[in-house]
Design a protein around this nucleic acid. Structure first.
Lengths: 231, 231
DNA sequence: CTCTTTCTTTGACACACCGCAAACATGGGA
DNA sequence: TCCCATGTTTGCGGTGTGTCAAAGAAAGAG
């Protein structure tokens, strides 16, 4: 399949790569369309490929032994994902599902060492990515350890607004379908509690919600809420 | 300082390294004694060195903006730690404090690339380590999202027993001083709740506690409790 | 256009957990 | 040896959140 090179070049990963190297990467890649609800890979499956999201939005989830689901992270265009093998894992630790119509590029994991060898920038980027993820995970642990639900939800929503926000006048609209349940799974609570919190916010004019829709109307107000030291 | 090479060789990192390579690493290292309560490095400080724990026990902590502390992980002998630079960070994300008299080896971070270059095994080990840590972090997030406090504490204690346990008859004693507060900071609760839970366990004969002491008397019983699906 | 499914909202209730407070152990230092 | 700092235990009340239950929107299917 023909890849739009100019799109790819806008991603941080390729920013400082020359055309030849970019081409060398792309020529080995396969592109795939992923309809909403479909999984790119599933938790526990053998890690045969690693991926780059070109377009759309994915959520990476894990299921606990007793059947509860959590959202580990949201994958945005330009993100590398599913490179378990680079971390010396043989299987994917989570499931990546499209929450919006998506297009992903994939490479066989066997090619990873060659690519890294040929283009050290890839290794650096991968390391940075992993480092960031570890940090994010720790930040989340910190939040869950010390903050009450409302603040956690506020943080999660603000993060989404930043990463997937689309300005609409003074407001910021989350640019993909997201449910109360999703937000609950990102913050470690229940959809009921999320719903209640968001109703309260709506009454205060901070956000505007709808079925799988969410718009932040007052970013500053919500930020204030997120940073509020209790007491 | 003279390093005991035979000790080092028992660590997984060096297991498959030959004497020459091991020597090459050690010759550039500095060893340092760390008394209880002292920090090897502090959160936010420039990452000038990376470390290997030879002996003792450290805890890595982070402090939130509003002053609350959490324990990110416990460092055991043989563990690499503080290699922020390998993840392209310029500062340490946490503080590493000795909870028992410790000895750590350190190398300047500038040497990391050379070492990796010369000994690819180091890179692989580092990657594995990071991968594991990311997984552990996600496991912890999963736990905190879905499990009530008692189960989380049970898991934490069992983990400690496995990583730092010392068999004493049928029981397993945690081999370093650990307070209720510490356990609270590892599980995202308060020392009061931990104390209450452990009192209950003690009454059931599962554990035996004391001032900064903890012995698991019935590992199976505690495991059962940790796995119990509520309801 | 209506039916059905999926998502959301809201209420009522219970309880796990936290915060506050005070007494109680423990071990090291003077 | 006694004392003091530090860690632990326990009680009590408040409340933030989960659970259960049911009704109300919204979107897609037929």
């Amino acid at each position: 399949m023909k890849i739009d090179k100019s799109l790819v070049r806008t991603f941080p990963l390729f920013e400082k790569m020359d055309d030849a190297d970019t081409e060398a990467l792309l020529v080995h890649s396969t592109s795939r369309r992923v309809p909403v609800g479909e999984a790119v890979f599933e938790q526990g499956a053998a890690a045969t490929h690693f991926f780059l999201l070109l377009h759309g939005r994915l959520k990476v989830t894990q299921v606990t032994e007793d059947g509860q689901q959590i959202i580990v992270r949201v994958v945005h265009p330009g993100d590398l994902f599913g490179f378990a093998k680079a971390l010396m894992r043989s299987d994917y630790p989570g499931t990546a599902t499209a929450v919006a119509e998506s297009i992903a590029l994939s490479w066989p994991t066997e090619l990873w060492p060659q690519f890294v060898d040929k283009n050290p920038r890839l290794a650096v980027t991968a390391m940075q990515t992993i480092g960031q993820r570890l940090e994010e995970a720790h930040a989340r642990i910190r939040e869950m350890s010390t903050q009450e639900v409302e603040r956690r939800v506020a943080h999660a929503v603000l993060r989404l607004a930043k990463q997937a926000g689309r300005k609409e006048g003074g407001a910021v609209r989350i640019d993909f379908p997201i449910s109360r349940q999703d937000i609950a799974e990102m913050t470690g609570t229940t959809l009921h509690t999320v719903s209640r919190i968001m109703s309260a916010w709506e009454a205060k004019g901070l956000v505007e919600g709808g079925r799988q829709k969410l718009t932040v109307k007052d970013v500053d107000g919500l930020s204030a809420l997120a940073e509020t030291v209790k007491g």
